[in-house]
Simulated assay, not measured.
Amino acid sequence: MSDRAPPPQSLLNSLPQRGELQRREPAPVHLWNPPLSGEMDMRIARDGTWYHEGEPIRRLALAQLFSTILRLDQDARYYLVTPVERWAIQVDDAPFIAVRLSVSGEGEQQQLLFHTSLEDEVPLDDEHPLRVELDPQSGEPSPYIRVRANLDALVSRTVFYELADLAVEAEVAGVQRIGVWSGGGFFPIDGAD
Rank of each mutant, 00 (worst) to 15 (best):
F66K: 09
G38R: 10
E85V: 10
E53F: 13
I57H: 09
Y51C: 10
L60Y: 00
L101V: 13
L101K: 13
R58W: 11
Q110N: 09
D73H: 12
Q111H: 12
Y51T: 07
D92V: 03
F66H: 15
E108P: 01
D47K: 09
A98C: 08
L62I: 15
L101T: 12
V91W: 08
T82F: 14
M42S: 04
Q109W: 05
W87R: 08
W32S: 01
E108I: 02
E108M: 06
V91Q: 07
E85K: 12
L72H: 08
P83D: 06
W87H: 14
A94I: 00
E106Q: 14
V84H: 15
V29L: 01
I44E: 00
T49N: 05
T68L: 05
F96G: 03
D93G: 09
L80V: 11
G105W: 05
G48M: 02
E55H: 10
V81L: 10
L101H: 13
G105L: 06
R24G: 00
S104G: 08
P35T: 01
P34D: 03
I89G: 04
R77W: 05
P28M: 11
L62M: 14
P28H: 06
S67M: 08
W32F: 06
I57N: 09
H30Y: 07
F96P: 01
R46D: 07
E106I: 05
R77I: 04
A27D: 05
I97L: 13
V91T: 07
I69S: 12
P35V: 00
A63Y: 08
D73F: 09
L60M: 13
W87I: 10
S67D: 14
P95V: 05
I57Q: 13
H52G: 03
L72D: 02
Y79V: 10
A63C: 11
D73N: 13
A98D: 09
A61C: 03
D47A: 06
W32D: 00
L80Y: 05
E85R: 12
L62F: 14
D47F: 02
V81C: 10
V29K: 00
P56W: 05
L65T: 05
R86L: 02
G107Q: 02
Q64F: 02
I97V: 15
P95R: 03
W50Y: 05
Q90P: 00
A27M: 07
G105F: 07
D92E: 15
L31R: 12
R59C: 06
G38S: 01
Y78L: 04
E25T: 07
L65D: 13
L112H: 03
R59L: 11
E53R: 14
R46W: 03
S102V: 11
R77K: 13
D92G: 04
L36I: 07
W87Y: 14
R46I: 04
A94C: 12
H52V: 14
Q90H: 13
Q90Y: 06
A61R: 10
D92I: 03
V91D: 03
R58C: 10
Q90V: 11
Q64A: 11
R43G: 00
S67N: 08
Q90A: 13
F96M: 07
T49F: 01
G54S: 09
L62A: 14
W50M: 02
I89S: 02
Q110A: 02
G38D: 00
L60A: 13
